[in-house]
């Protein structure tokens, strides 16, 4: 019995190779490898990377958050409004992240306390959020001319090529990869998503874990929304409507099982890159914007199909029986 884990090609490893190959391909065939190409890729991928980590953690526990996009809208609006009111970064950043945390936490609370599936709660919340923007926020939440106090971080670069936002995303990813591997909490997420009953037997309180993970997701959604908002001179909450699709597909492409209980943060991060590379490739190939809707749908289907193929392996015997009933 060896004490050292043997290396083998995992799903994440495979995805990393695909992503690398894709980057190579784009570099050779387009001007992707130019300074501006690399910069804009890193800038675009950062928010999705961070949010995909949050969504993955939710999905590990067997839940989902359809309102992740619309929560981002509130985060951006809060930041924008506070900047207009003259708040410094030290205030508006934590405040905006707090808004995200609380809104997602509310989803978690309702899911757990009333035993309503998170899909329905967050779907309804999505609607409430969108209605709220237009009904209660002045000018539907549109704030312009925010000025450099708002945008300096989003537009700052290290060595003139690496956006600060990407550095934030990398640090967040590193922290959460570490947490999932080296903390009790990380293992508990898989336990709750894998087998709730056993989790209870292992002394885990699933309700508490699920509420916690929604709060953490909210925190990450907060960061993600800022990484996107801070690059622009204006905020518009409705800009974030539908973003959850990118987050979810990044997680699913990364091998996070929609059934809960398995998947890796590394996968979600690579998944986010993959989703963007595809988008970039589409743009280079000259497809219109709206092709991306259709493509995104297809990517999700293929990604999940691969996961389910694995999953059915796990439940081989049971599924065999049901498959026979043609």
């Amino acid at each position: 019995m060896s004490l050292i884990k043997k290396p083998k090609l995992t799903r994440e490893g495979l995805l990393a190779i695909i992503v690398a190959a894709f980057i190579l391909f784009l570099s050779l065939t387009t001007n992707f490898s130019s300074k501006s190409g690399i910069y804009s890729f890193m800038l675009d991928v950062s928010p999705t990377m961070v949010a995909a980590i949050g969504l993955s953690m939710i999905i590990f526990t067997g839940n989902i958050d359809i309102s992740a996009g619309t929560i981002s809208g509130f985060v951006a609006y809060t930041a924008g409004a506070l900047v207009k009111a003259g708040a410094p970064m030290i205030i508006f950043v934590p405040a905006a992240i707090l808004v995200g945390t609380l809104l997602a936490g509310l989803n978690g609370y309702l899911t757990v306390k009333f035993k309503v599936p998170s899909i329905v709660v967050t779907l309804a919340m999505n609607m409430v959020h969108v209605g709220f923007y237009a009904t209660f926020l002045p000018q539907s939440g549109w704030i312009e001319n925010l000025g450099p106090r708002f945008t300096w971080f989003g537009r700052a670069r290290l060595f003139g090529i690496i956006p600060y936002t990407f550095l934030v995303a990398v640090v967040v990813a590193a922290i959460f990869i570490f947490i999932m591997a080296y903390s009790k909490f990380g293992k508990k997420l898989y336990a709750v998503g894998g087998n709730v009953q056993s989790a209870v037997y292992s002394g885990i309180n699933p309700d508490r874990i699920v509420i916690k993970v929604f709060f953490i997701e909210g925190f990450l959604i907060g960061i993600s929304a800022l990484l996107r908002a801070l690059t622009r001179n204006e905020v518009m909450p409705s800009m974030f409507i539908g973003r959850e699709l990118f987050f979810i597909s990044a997680a699913l492409v990364g091998g996070v099982s929609i059934f809960g209980g398995s998947g890796k943060i590394t996968g979600a991060v690579l998944g986010a890159m993959f989703v963007y590379l595809i988008t970039i490739a589409m743009i280079y190939l000259g497809f219109q914007d709206y092709y991306q809707f259709a493509l995104q749908g297809i990517i999700i289907l293929i990604a999940v199909f691969i996961t389910v193929a694995d999953f059915s392996n796990w439940k081989k015997k049971r599924l065999k029986a049901s498959e026979g009933a043609v």
Binding site: K187, A191, N195, A199, S202, I204
Partner: peptide
């Protein structure tokens, strides 16, 4: 009933909740 987590490793399973 089995109280194991099918998608996790043997090591993760036997120390679940009390790593």
């Amino acid at each position: 009933e089995s109280s194991l987590f099918p998608e996790l490793t043997v090591l993760e399973n036997i120390f679940m909740g009390h790593e």
